[in-house]
Amino acid sequence: MEIDPFIFRLSIFILSIFIGYYVVWSVTPSLHTPLMSVTNAISSVIIVGAIIAALAGSSNNIFDTSSIFGYLAIILAAINIFGGFLVTQRMLQMYKKKKNNKK
């Protein structure tokens, strides 16, 4: 008997939860704010679905209802991707160690 592909995806999902669990516990508490902004950015990989939806419109009608929702989702996800990664970068840039030459 063949295994339903859904089971494979479910396995990936559950294993990823475990990975997430161990990885996130190792994040230092002082970086919890950047953690939130970067998780925000990466969850916007949902843009993948938005792009598929937007490009699915037939060539004589590229603005059917479904692709319009795709276009809207692209804007939202793009704001998040750029905003999320850049603001994380900006924050991480500020975390500096003590300068040793200063006494």
Partner: peptide
Amino acid sequence: FTLENTALIITGALVGSS
């Protein structure tokens, strides 16, 4: 899961548990 997309499933699980 709907889109059968591994990147989204992995990310969703990571962010969810985070």
